[in-house]
Nucleic acid binder design. Sequence first.
DNA 1: ACTTGACTTAGAGTTAACTCTAATCAATAT
DNA 2: ATATTGATTAGAGTTAACTCTAAGTCAAGT
Lengths: 118, 118
Amino acid sequence: MHTIGETAELLGISAHTLRYYEKEQIIIPLRDAGGDRRYTESHIKWLQFVIKLKETQMPIASIKKYASLFKEGDHTAADRLNLLAEHQRSIRAQMQTLQDADEMLTFKIASYRTLTEV
Amino acid sequence: MHTIGETAELLGISAHTLRYYEKEQIIIPLRDAGGDRRYTESHIKWLQFVIKLKETQMPIASIKKYASLFKEGDHTAADRLNLLAEHQRSIRAQMQTLQDADEMLTFKIASYRTLTEV
DNA sequence: ACTTGACTTAGAGTTAACTCTAATCAATAT
DNA sequence: ATATTGATTAGAGTTAACTCTAAGTCAAGT
């Protein structure tokens, strides 16, 4: 059980962001007797997954969608699978774009080197 | 020589965006007798380069920086090379992040398949 | 002469994803 | 007993990168 501050620290995001994700229904932590948020290990696992999706440009809206399907129960498993498969395709397209840009830069940098060296 | 509409069409971006890039000093097209913008082949090459940088998450501010160094002249070549080399490192880091997420998703999707098939 | 369509400008509005503010409260440290 | 720390809330503000609006000019076509 972690406080919001500990959880933020642990994940490398701000407490503000955690409250924002809660407002967006992406994580709903427990509350202690005093009303403070408490994050369990499984909340943290879920957040780490969310962060991975974010890092790969999945919009908050889609993450929200995934979270809400999850809450709906087991009968949404196929929909969730589709969502993840779709995102995997997007990741692969991004990799291709990066690959192309990398090659372009390698070439451009080489021309600069030639210019600079003389 | 292309009008703003043709150029937008050609590059797959909007005329609005081209005006915005001009406001940001990223491209300064020529003007015809009537005051309308005219983009040459070399403007278009530059814009294609800009679009590649954008697609790989380079912020407009950095692209602006690069453009301004370019305008300053040949003595900024080393600075420009550094900027590009730095961006190439960022591209490679992004590829690694995508690679990791891809593997994670492959695993997660496989678990869903197992669940769904039964 | 009139309409159409592409262009012009300054500046306002939009969207995503935070990020912060102000006012408050509860537990701990001195 | 007071001060600090870390939490709470609703709601406002920020930033990047567009995206649009309003009001207009101008050339070409019917």
